[in-house]
Amino acid sequence: MNKAVTTTSLALALSAALAVAAIPMTAHAAEKDKCFGVALKGKNDCKAGAGTSCAGTSKVDYQSNAWSMVPKGTCEQTTSPTSPTGFGQLQEFKAKSA
């Protein structure tokens, strides 16, 4: 905890912050630590999905013991120091029989 906070230190910090904020940011300052996200789309519309064979109708139900899938995305490129396999202990999930 910041037990040493004094009213003077608050004023000093604000004063320093104002000085920093008043200066235009350089192009690459702290580039690694910040990032703009993408523009969002609208989620409400009145379209219908095309046909009846889309992903949504495929039979998937892990509660009935049918779920055996492994993530196959960018998680495979990560490394975890605590994982013996190197990338996050991925294994096929087998639901317990009900």
């Binding site: 046909g51 992903a55 109708t57 998937v60 995305g73 998680c75």
Partner: peptide, 29 residues
């Protein structure tokens, strides 16, 4: 199909990085 797919699409719009990490098949399931 419309109900299920459109709502999964809505989730995919909100969670694109989660989807990328898992892969589309796992995420959508």
């Amino acid at each position: 199909n419309n109900v299920t797919v459109s709502l999964i699409d809505a989730l995919a719009d909100t969670y694109p990085v989660t989807q990328a990490m898992l892969g589309e098949e796992f995420f959508r399931a």
